[in-house]
Design a protein around this nucleic acid. Structure first.
Lengths: 144, 144
DNA sequence: ACCATATACTTACTTAGGTAAATAAATTCG
DNA sequence: CGAATTTATTTACCTAAGTAAGTATATGGT
């Protein structure tokens, strides 16, 4: 029975990525790339480590995505004072377009969550956050 | 704010896959492969279409995974009466080992859901199922 | 019976994620 | 100071998922 839960999460994850990719098509962008743009918009220039830590993925994943985004002109990477690290920031083009994308994605999310009340959405986030391994202490659960 | 929800789903999806892969290592198996084994164990021999429809993925995804599983001896594919379709079933080896894997995965899931009561788990499934596009009618929500 | 269409699967190519190992810069310690 | 260790990023190789287009078998309409 519990299989159902992970099965369901896995499916909704794929579904949302698929829908986001569809919405991003007109901007020539992919979901993981958008996640990074969104992150940079929120926090300003940051190191690659900052990005993969926030996104909770491994370093190579971010490297690859950033290479593609640099090639397509969404981001710029420059050397930090610590020469090991590279500081990532939005390109001018990205700065201009990100608000439009944000709007488009917000509409999509609203459509996909239309069947849930605001209360249910909050409940859902609260419960999902509880999933995990032992390191799921109060601090993680408390920050809502 | 709503970004948080998809962000969270995406992360838990990755996390659960990562943990499942870790648990499956000793069986030389990957999460998507296990999903198919589980499916075949539940329903018995079925066509590839049956598998990708149940799993809610595209046909090529299943083709690829089955090719690997056939090579490593987990499944067998034979021609159906309709010569276009291929009927997939567990190998003898798989029949023997699947129960052990099932047990291992069940333990893992229990650990990952330890912070949620049974009631919360049911609630969580109910809410997740509500996520989707327009085709989210009563039938989908009612079947719990 | 034949041609057009539909269906089941496969192939080729793309993004996205992971691990392991390599590289290069910083830091620590004797 | 110099060698050893740690840290940030990259490279190489794996699974997983998607789309688009190709192949082969069934099916339907005239």
């Amino acid at each position: 029975m519990k299989n159902l839960l992970f099965h369901e999460i896995h499916q909704k994850s794929r579904l949302s990525i698929k829908e986001v990719n569809e919405a991003l098509k007109e901007f020539d962008l992919y979901s993981a790339q958008w996640s990074i743009l969104f992150c940079l918009k929120q926090f300003g220039p940051m190191t690659q480590k900052g990005i993969w830590q926030y996104m909770n993925v491994e370093a190579p994943t971010v490297t690859r995505t950033l290479v593609r985004m640099e090639q397509s002109g969404w981001i710029v990477r420059k050397e930090g004072s610590d020469k090991r690290e590279r500081i990532v920031q939005l390109s001018e083009h990205a700065e201009q377009v990100v608000p439009q994308i944000e709007k488009r994605i917000a509409e999509l999310e609203e459509r996909m969550l239309a069947a849930l009340t605001d209360e249910e959405q909050q409940q859902l986030i609260r419960l999902i956050k509880k999933i995990g391994m032992e390191d799921n202490k109060e601090e993680d659960v408390a920050n809502d």
